[in-house]
Design a protein around this nucleic acid. Structure first.
Lengths: 184, 184
DNA sequence: GTCTATATGTCGATAGAC
DNA sequence: GTCTATCGACATATAGAC
């Protein structure tokens, strides 16, 4: 009997799979679903295109795995401040995982669906925290605003949001959130 | 000599070209740049794919012609109310022409550039109307908010913005715009 | 576990018939 | 003015060698 290999085949597989997944996330986040090719992901991960297919089955499956994001909780306490805290997380470090879905949300149905699913649960909680009768509209606007700010800052860079300190943005947005959360 | 044709070749050409352009706008707005094919546009316009190429030269050129939008002015008077008036235009009728650029802004460089170009001129005017020292940030946030609301309402439909009356949305957004426009 | 070779499809673009 | 035919590039996905 020979020495057992220092890394088993299963370990090796998990390793390579993780490398592919990281490369996929970066490529999908950068180029969107249509423009990223299995070949490009494979090259970025240092493996062959066939191997990516062998592990993930299809491009669609690879995207689903790459786009899977852990749901974030809405902290307790004052609703406006809780929302600002969530937005702060999104604004302080570039959220690569979220960008996978955001980049393709307008051109790839599965991305839009995934985002809708994540958002609906989230919107419900915001609604529940808002006393007003038109809580759904207010929650929808809050969601649209947060989406717009993150998309502009990380993907679109239309204005000067890209380089601004998160604190400055949050300070300017606080009155907005307060008025949207506050009762009529 | 025979009777002159009721529609000259030039007229016919302008006619067909317009039909193609309309079909292109709808398809680009609905599917984005990558997923729309010349063939699909041609079929929607009732002509052959070769003819589209013959008239527009390339898919990129067709997109540029379809995406060309007329710049909108910022009305004079109170800045916050002026912005709300502009947003009202966007929220009352589905702006198909704008949606061509918006749909592809995250996945097609030319669309992002076109939007940036249109936005920069626009942001400058908003900045000029804002007294505060951090006018660029405030203007950037206003732009991001308007973008987020329009995208959610017409393309993403995450929440309940899609079916809401424009007046309700504008009423809820007024305090936001006022606080962003107002001096510190 | 990983790679090679290739089947299969679809796209943008070109050339030319009618 | 409009359509037919086709080329060449590149994609996903499959089958199987090593």
């Amino acid at each position: 009997m020979t020495e057992p290999p220092r890394r088993t085949r299963a370990q090796q597989r998990r390793d390579t799979e993780a490398r592919i997944l990281t490369a996929a996330r970066e490529t999908f986040a950068g180029l969107g679903y249509e423009r990223t090719t299995i070949r490009a992901v494979a090259t970025a991960a240092g493996v062959n295109a066939g191997l990516v297919m062998h592990y993930f089955g299809s491009k669609e499956e690879l995207f689903a795995r790459a786009a899977h994001l852990s749901p974030h909780e809405l902290p307790p306490g004052d609703p406006a401040e809780a929302l600002l805290a969530v937005l702060r997380e999104r604004l302080e470090g570039e959220p690569v995982a979220s960008l996978v879905l955001l980049r393709s949300m307008l051109t790839h149905t599965e991305a839009a669906d995934g985002l809708r699913e994540a958002a609906s649960e989230w919107l419900e909680r915001i609604e529940a925290a808002i006393p007003a009768g038109d809580a759904d509209l207010r929650a929808g606007l809050i969601g649209a605003i947060m989406m717009g700010v993150v998309v502009d800052r990380y993907l679109l860079k239309l204005g000067s949001l890209a380089d601004a300190p998160a604190d400055d943005l949050l300070a300017l947005l606080r009155p907005c959130f307060e008025s949207l959360v506050g009762a009529r």
